[in-house]
Computed example of a mutant assay.
Amino acid sequence: MVTNSSGSVEHSSGLRGVVPIVIAALLWGTTGTAAHFLPGDVSPLATGAATMFIGGVLLFAVSSRGAVAALRDRRSLVWLLVGSLGVFAYPLAFYSSMHLAGVAIGTVVSLGAAPVFAAILEFLVDRRRVSLRWALATAVAVLGVVLLATGGSAGTEAAASVWGVLLGLVAAFSYALYTFASERAIGAGHSSRSVMGALFGVGAVLLAPVLIVTGAPLLQSWSSVAITGYLALGPMFVAYLLFGAGLRWVRSSTATVITLIEPAVATVLAVVIVGERFDLFGWLGLALVAVGILILVLPRRGPTALDAPRL
Rank of each mutant, 00 (worst) to 15 (best):
G282R: 10
T214E: 14
G292D: 01
H99S: 11
L269C: 13
F37T: 12
A305S: 15
V19R: 04
V116K: 10
R184M: 08
T3R: 14
G246F: 00
G151N: 11
L166H: 09
V2H: 07
P309W: 10
L132G: 15
A93C: 09
L231N: 10
G246L: 11
A204N: 01
L286Q: 01
F278D: 14
M236F: 13
L211P: 15
A70W: 04
L306F: 07
V145M: 12
L121C: 02
A171D: 05
V165G: 01
P115N: 00
I105A: 15
W134I: 03
I54F: 14
A67V: 06
I23V: 03
W79P: 09
S153T: 13
W222K: 09
L136T: 14
E183P: 12
T259N: 04
I258F: 05
V2K: 15
S253G: 00
R251K: 00
L286E: 11
S97M: 12
G86R: 08
F117M: 09
V202E: 03
A119G: 01
T254A: 06
D41N: 15
R301Q: 14
T267S: 05
L26C: 11
A69E: 04
R128G: 02
A70I: 07
L296G: 02
A101K: 02
S223C: 10
V225W: 09
Y175I: 01
L132A: 14
G83E: 07
G234P: 11
L207N: 01
S223W: 09
R251H: 00
A239T: 03
H11T: 13
S253K: 10
L100Y: 14
A264Y: 08
L143H: 11
G29H: 09
A69P: 11
V109R: 08
P39A: 00
L280N: 14
V116C: 07
L81A: 11
